[in-house]
Each structure stands twice: as structure tokens, then as C-alpha cells.
Simulated assay, not measured.
Amino acid sequence: MKATWDIFCTVVDNYGDIGVTWRLARQLVDEHEIAVRLWVDDLNAFVPMCPGADAAALQQWQQGVDVRQWPAEWVPIEPADVVIGAFACQLPAHYVEAMRARAKPPLWLNLEYLSAEHWVEGCHGLPSPQANGLRKVFFFPGFTEKTGGLLREATLLARRQAFEQSAEARQAFLQRLGVYPEVQARLISLFAYENTQLGNWLDALAAGSQPTHLLVPQGRILADVGSWLGQARLEVGDVRVRGALTVQILPFVSQDDYDRLLWSCDFNAVRGEDSFVRAQWAGRPMLWHIYVQDENAHWEKLEAFLEHYRHGLSADASAALVALWRAWNMDRDVGQAWQAAQQHWPELQQHARDWAARQATRPDLAMALVQFYRNWL
């Protein structure tokens, strides 16, 4: 019999946690023919990225994945052969007890948040004995061969290339979203947390010599965009023009359409973890809004990634890139940093392609998880 997998997800920050676990579950089913149950405590966050899903259903099948509502009162159920607790979420006590009661306990993995910090390599794959006799293993995604890799479907880069080579496919996709940019306009996507420096950037775009069409999917940054425009409330489909900048509000789209959106743009501002990884696979210059932590602990994670990502850039381009990312995440003048980065645009474009190609030479996260289970057996 084939192994069964349970993935548990507690929705903490709107879409990041469910975005990663839903993408992982789909890939395990599609590419490894694994029976996956995805347990989610808030399906309202799941529905926007999986059109057709039912937020009230206790159980539903979506794209081959058995999606379950994580009930407040746990109903006894046989644990899977592999159990993944995403991002240190606490599994139901009754489920853990059922794991312990099995003749052969399942492989219990704690799928951690993505980080480029040096200590991750030393902790990846380490076991953590539990008081009840079970053993939990820390599994870290990452950017080096000593980590678990990044989520990447086997056909992802080939699909991106086919899309890029078809002007008709790009035009049809944008038109489906109601986007009709000027011929010479630079297309930018913006998916971010609230940011007091957004206005500086938008001012720079509006005053620029090149037309810019900014696509803003529904999300937390919308209020800041509206404040800059002097509009209290923005709705999906709204289009506003100020100077050289056109701002358009998009609906929240499925994961596959979000990939196409990233591929369609010349620059992508993203946030959190799932969109952060997908922007890297898009092979476009990008800007990451890292999730804010107490006492600015997130700055260390930002710097750790930049240490990896800027490798191969010239000194001037590297400095401009770092200044832009720091400005966005450290409450500095983003508009000024953006203008400085424009002087290195061709190099930043090529670097983004090269980075994606280098990361694609390593095993992807789903494959690494499957191989880890095989080795454990």
C-alpha cells in the first residue's frame, strides 16, 4: 500500500501558511501519487486561492487533495504514515496519542519557516524526542544543498518559459484580469503588508519618465494605496491614474494565476513566504516585504537572504539592491532607493534569471520530503 500523508496547517497570517501547505499537498499528489489529507483550521483563507472550494465543508476533494476542516472538537481518526505539522502548529492531542498508539509510529515532521540563516543547515533533519516517546524531526526549507530546498513543481520553469515566449498567452491572461497596459508601460505587481514608505515609492513611479502600470491584488496594502490616492476605499476593478503611474486593483487570484501574474510583470513586490518563493521562480527583479517580528528579529533573516541573493552582482548593483530592500523593510526612503536601483536594471534582470536557474539545480522541497521518508523507512 502507498504511504498516506497528513499535513496540518494553522492559518496565522492570512494566506502564507495555507499557501505553502496547499501548494505542497498538490505537488505530493500530482508528482508523487501520494494520498494527502490537508487539515486547515480556517478554510476562509483557503477559498480565495482555490476557486470552487467550500469554506464550510468538513471534507472536500480539491485537485486530488483530501481537504479537511480541522475541527475544534477532534474526532478520532487513524493517523497517516507521514505527519507534517506546518510551521510549529500544535497537533490535536488525541491525534498525537493515536500516533503513539500505532505499532509503528509515523514519521513526524515539523516543516519550518523558510530562512537563509546559517544555523538552519545545522538544525535541518535533527530529531526532537518527545515526552510521550514519539520523535519529531525538524525539516527546514532553504537555499543550500544542506537544507530541504524550495517548493518547485517539476514543470514550473518549462511552463514559465512557454508563457514568456507567447505574447498572445500573456495578453490573453492580462485581458482576463481586465488589464490593458500601455504598449511601453512597465508592469509591476504589489502584494505587501502595510508600509509607511509606500507613498515615497508611488511618488517616484508617478514622477518617472516611463509609464508604469501597478497591479495590486486584494490584500493588506490596499489601505495604504488608497491613502496615497486620497480614496478611502478601493474596490476590485478600480483604475486610477496619477502622472506616469496607473494603479489597478485586482481580485485575489488562484495560485496558478498568481504565477502567471508574476511572469507577466517586469518587477514584483511580494511578502511573506509563498509569494516570496514564487517571485524568485518568476526570474524577475523583486522586492521582499518580510514578515515583521518583535524587536526587529526579521532583519537578521532579511540580511541572511540578501547575503545569498546578491552573490554574483557587481558591487554597485549589489549596493543598490540591498539599499532598496532595506528601505522597504526598515522604514527608509523607498523612492530614492528605487531611483538608484534603476541605474542597474539590466544587471538586476539578468541576475534574477540566473538566481532562479541556480536554485533549480537543487532538489525541490516535495522531492526532499519524499526522499527523507524513503530513507527513514
Rank of each mutant, 00 (worst) to 15 (best):
W228Q: 12
R233A: 07
E235P: 01
D238A: 07
V239P: 10
V241M: 12
G243Q: 13
A244I: 08
F252H: 08
F252Q: 10
S254F: 09
S254W: 00
D256E: 15
D257F: 04
D257M: 00
D259V: 10
D259M: 01
L261R: 02
L262Q: 09
L262C: 13
S264M: 10
F267Y: 08
N268E: 08
V270I: 02
V270C: 11
G272Y: 00
G272T: 08
E273D: 01
A279R: 10
Q280S: 04
W281Y: 01
A282M: 07
A282T: 05
A282V: 11
G283T: 11
R284Q: 15
R284H: 03
M286E: 06
L287T: 08
W288M: 11
W288L: 03
H289M: 06
E295S: 14
A304H: 04
R310E: 02
R310M: 13
H311Y: 12
H311V: 15
D316P: 00
A317I: 01
A320M: 11
V322C: 03
L324D: 09
W325D: 05
N329H: 06
N329V: 04
N329I: 00
M330V: 10
R332C: 06
R332E: 11
V334C: 13
G335A: 08
Q336C: 13
A337M: 11
W338P: 06
W338C: 02
Q343T: 11
P346E: 13
E347N: 03
L348C: 10
Q349T: 12
Q350W: 06
Q350G: 04
